[in-house]
């Protein structure tokens, strides 16, 4: 059994438990929430497994940059946008700009 099997097995369990619901009568919301999560888990695991068969295994020796200011900037932008909803639009706009700057930094760091 490999990594992708884990979400497939787990998602299968969710689908099976959701199916038991049918014997107690149909309840759309509950069935959709649990069954939807289960089917999504199975699909994610299956897609990951298919991709893993086509690509080389991931090595754990790849180095990463020691810091990522862009990631923190993007997160600060999201926080400023949230806080801006109470303080004023100017802070939300500033947050949006920070988010954009952060994302650009992260993308540029990834390309290096």
């Amino acid at each position: 059994m490999s990594g992708p099997h884990v979400p497939v097995v787990w998602g299968g369990l969710l689908v099976a438990i959701a199916a038991v619901q049918l014997t107690f009568g149909m309840h759309g919301t509950a069935l959709a929430l649990l069954g939807g999560a289960g089917i999504t888990a199975v699909l994610v695991g299956a897609a990951w497994g298919a991709r893993a068969r086509l690509t080389a295994p991931v090595t754990t020796t790849a180095a990463s940059a020691a810091t990522s200011p862009g990631a923190a900037t993007a997160a600060a932008g999201v926080g400023a946008m949230a806080l801006g909803s109470a303080i004023g639009a100017w802070l939300s706009i500033t947050g949006g700009a920070l988010l954009l700057i952060g994302v650009v930094q992260v993308v540029r760091q990834g390309r290096r």
């Binding site: 990463s64 940059a65 990522s68 923190a72 997160a75 926080g79 949230a82 992260v106």
Partner: peptide, 18 residues
């Protein structure tokens, strides 16, 4: 040797604190 998606993990930690 590292966590998967180290930059994402850092962003996650910041989002949590903020």
């Amino acid at each position: 040797r590292r966590i998967a998606g180290p930059g994402a993990a850092l962003a996650g930690a910041w989002l949590y604190g903020i």
